[in-house]
Simulated assay, not measured.
Amino acid sequence: MKKIGITGQNGFVGSHLYNTLGLYPEKFETIHFDRDFFENEEKLDEFVGKCDVIVHLAAMNRHPDPEVIYNNNLDLVKKLVSSLEKTNSKAHVLFSSSAQEEKDNLYGKSKKEGRELLAEWAEKSGGKFTGMVIPNVFGPFGKPNYNSFIATFCHKLTHGETPVIDNDGEVKLIYVGELVQEIINQIERGETKKLYEVQSTSTNKVSEVLQKLENYKQLYFDNGEIPVLETQFDFNLFNTFRCYFDIKNHYPVKFTQHTDPRGAFVEVIRLGIGGQCSFSTTVPGITRGNHYHTRKIERFAVIKGKALIQLRKIDTDEVLDFYLDGNEPAYVDMPIWYTHNIKNIGEEELYTIFWINEPFNPEDADTYFLEV
């Protein structure tokens, strides 16, 4: 079992890496990191001394003064190198650099010089080093106006604002889940690579990405329809988009009921993709679920009885409660990385329709059990 520490553990990429490593407790143990360790030599040394692998992600991306970015990022690397030397560490250090290394800006310069400093440490100390040069990263929970233009577009489209394109160039992109898997692959290989260029998984014009997101807004955000998703990039972009909703105020979404003397008719879901549709009854007091998915798209539709649907993003404590009543049929969709459940809180049987975008495969279930 490898003991892995992540500087920047709570950041965009760091939190995804930390949570994904947690899915494999038989292979990896994560060593806790706090931001203030860089301000406390004793704590930093203790952290470094425990690690077989250190993934250095902590960095500043944006600041009004580029000199502040440059000095901050190099200072973090120098402190890490000093701690590695003091603890006589032979850890495998992976460093997150940027495709901006070759551009004439201080952020790119800080990344290139930081990578070179760590490579020098590894050569002198006998440690291992992988200097990963990473393209533009997007995915769920990135900060708008900070991590990615996709995060900015998603936030604006789901919060009543209009995205603006500053430069409609082609952008090489990698989904954060794909990057995390690449990092894990490098951890498992344990090889020294002073310069390792992580390949992008898609190349898109900014306007093409915005067009897709505007389509998701019209079909899904406004009308609840699952759009056509033809490529892996489309799935990743759609799952990213879904994570920017103001979930507390968006759900539950009531269905349109058509009634006549015969009874009522409700369209539960309109699909641009396939999947698996299931029906369940739940007796009073029983709870189903308490699990989360990292890629699946899922809808719970209550058509009879009273239900409490609960969601919690897995690395937070806030529980979101949604009360649904079959007298006014409604649905809640499950964002990825949110553990969720459904409980019958009524006195009669609860009838629920479940839809998920891929048939259940026990060998690749993408279902991880965790109490809400």
Rank of each mutant, 00 (worst) to 15 (best):
K306M: 15
I303K: 01
P140A: 09
F153Q: 00
L23R: 10
W121I: 13
I314D: 09
V209H: 02
F95K: 11
E102L: 13
F129R: 12
H56G: 04
V302Q: 10
S278N: 15
A301F: 03
N341L: 00
R312M: 14
G5M: 04
D222A: 01
G108Q: 12
L74S: 10
G131A: 11
S96Q: 07
G326S: 01
L237K: 06
E161R: 06
N185V: 03
E170T: 12
E182D: 14
D36G: 05
L80K: 14
L195M: 11
Q211P: 05
K2G: 01
K50D: 07
F38Y: 09
Q100E: 03
E46C: 10
F47Y: 10
N223S: 15
L324W: 00
I69C: 15
A99D: 12
L21S: 14
D364K: 14
E26W: 12
G5H: 07
P359A: 07
K79R: 05
N185F: 14
T281I: 05
E120Y: 04
A307G: 10
I342W: 00
V77H: 14
K86H: 15
V198H: 06
V176C: 07
C277F: 15
T294S: 15
M60I: 02
G22A: 07
E347H: 11
V283T: 15
W121Q: 02
F149Y: 03
N185Y: 13
K90V: 15
Q9Y: 03
F138H: 06
Y251S: 00
E191W: 02
Q257F: 01
L370V: 13
R288V: 00
L179M: 02
V372M: 05
E267N: 05
G49S: 12
L320C: 14
I4F: 04
P163S: 00
I187H: 12
E101V: 14
G139W: 12
T20H: 15
I150L: 10
F95N: 13
F322Q: 04
Q232W: 13
I353Y: 05
K254H: 12
K43Y: 13
S148G: 09
E116D: 15
C243P: 02
Q181L: 06
K212G: 03
L213S: 10
E214C: 02
F129I: 10
G346H: 05
L118P: 08
D333G: 04
K90T: 08
D168K: 01
F12L: 11
P163E: 01
L271Y: 10
E349D: 12
R189I: 11
I6A: 08
E318V: 12
T158I: 06
N239V: 04
Q211K: 15
K112P: 08
I356H: 02
L370R: 07
L370P: 04
F279S: 07
T352S: 02
Q257E: 01
G224W: 03
V266S: 02
G190K: 04
P140K: 00
P261C: 01
I345A: 00
L229A: 12
V133F: 03
E214P: 00
V133A: 13
A119C: 09
E123P: 04
E267F: 07
F141M: 13
T240R: 09
S96P: 05
N145W: 07
A151Y: 02
H293N: 07
S96C: 13
E39R: 09
I54D: 05
I184G: 13
L117F: 14
G274Q: 08
F37T: 11
S280V: 10
E39H: 05
I184W: 09
